[in-house]
């Protein structure tokens, strides 16, 4: 998933007190036993709503995330890198298809999701609102943004909703290729010429702040968050995910001799937690609300693609088709 920084709805704590208490107890018992929830099961409104929102945002992030990398396919250095990047970008768009389908089983149509992305009603991972100036920026995404996504996705794959977990299992299997490929690219830049090393160092300097934003602001543990955790919608706090990412990847970045642009960054050997300069959450808010360097371009590219594809969809439309939610 791109972006732990999922925006969960602020809900008053009594918003599920109107649910049928017997059904709610059965539902919670099922999750407690470690059984998955399937689309035809009864579920609380809050559960349905938050899952649709989360899965849909995840799907949008895959689609929009394909743009800053996709733009480098034709300029990737050499035939092998072009083939690999093309395969990766295709995977990402495929992930969106899997995720939209999972969200659809909860009752939101794909038409609606696509419209909500284009009109800005639904969000996607903030990090893709930044530009990829050089090939090294593209490599940063392939390796480290995907690494962050994998931390989130592996956690969410243990969640409670069957269709989302199945989609994530498929996605994680493909992500292992993305991660290996991304690391491979960066190793080659690191062991290349001074110019190549500088190129990646500059990309790292540009991308580190949005990477720290990636997992979202520290969560205030509200009763609301506790409920989502009990229902296994939210599988860890944003800070836990960020810490896990730093734990796994900071040593790998340092190993390659690069400098992470945060003089405060170090692991506290007593707490086992990473310490860092507090990310600029004002910038995060500003960008997520539309004022980033590429927000407009990303949505325009998606919107124009949709407009241009209209005649094809019209031409292929089968008048006798009927719509039902997919099964699983």
């Amino acid at each position: 998933m791109y972006g732990g920084g999922n925006t969960f709805e602020e809900v008053k704590t009594d918003s599920f007190s109107q649910e049928d208490p017997i059904k709610l107890a059965e539902f919670e018992a099922r999750i407690e036993r470690g059984e998955k929830i399937e689309p035809s099961d009864w579920m609380p409104q809050l559960y349905r709503k938050q899952l649709i929102r989360m899965i849909e945002q995840h799907g949008h992030s895959e689609i929009i995330g394909a743009l800053p990398e996709g733009t480098w396919i034709t300029r990737a250095p050499g035939f092998k890198r072009k083939m690999a990047l093309m395969a990766k970008v295709q995977d990402e768009v495929g992930h969106a298809q899997l995720l939209y389908s999972a969200a659809e089983t909860l009752g939101k149509s794909r038409e609606q999701m696509i419209d909500d992305l284009i009109t800005g009603k639904s969000k996607y991972s903030n990090i893709f609102n930044y530009p990829t100036f050089t090939w090294a920026d593209c490599c940063f995404i392939s390796w480290l943004v995907d690494a962050g996504a994998i931390v989130n996705q592996l956690a969410n794959a243990k969640g409670s909703y069957g269709p989302y977990c199945r989609a994530l299992d498929r996605i994680c299997a493909e992500e292992s290729f993305h991660l290996k490929y991304g690391h491979h690219c960066v190793i080659y830049l690191a062991s290349g010429t001074q110019k190549q090393r500088d190129m990646f160092q500059e990309a790292l300097n540009r991308w580190w702040p949005p990477m720290m934003h990636f997992f979202g602001p520290a969560d205030k543990i509200s009763i609301h968050t506790q409920v989502l955790m009990k229902w296994k919608v939210k599988m860890g706090t944003n800070d836990d995910m960020r810490n896990q990412f730093l734990d796994m990847y900071v040593p790998k970045i340092w190993e390659l001799g690069f400098t992470i642009p945060d003089s405060q960054l170090k692991k506290n050997s007593e707490t086992g937690r990473w310490e860092y300069t507090e990310p600029d959450w004002e910038e995060f808010k500003r960008v997520i609300n539309g004022d980033g360097p590429c927000n407009k371009e990303r949505l325009e590219v998606r919107r124009i693609a949709e407009e241009r594809g209209k005649w094809v969809r019209e031409a292929m439309k089968a008048p006798n088709q009927k719509y039902v939610s997919p099964l699983a």
């Binding site: 149509s109 038409e111 696509i114 419209d115 439309k317 088709q321 719509y323 939610s325």
Partner: peptide, 13 residues
Amino acid sequence: RINPKPALDQFGT
């Protein structure tokens, strides 16, 4: 802006 999509714009499943 985009015109709201009619049902089945994205086809059946």
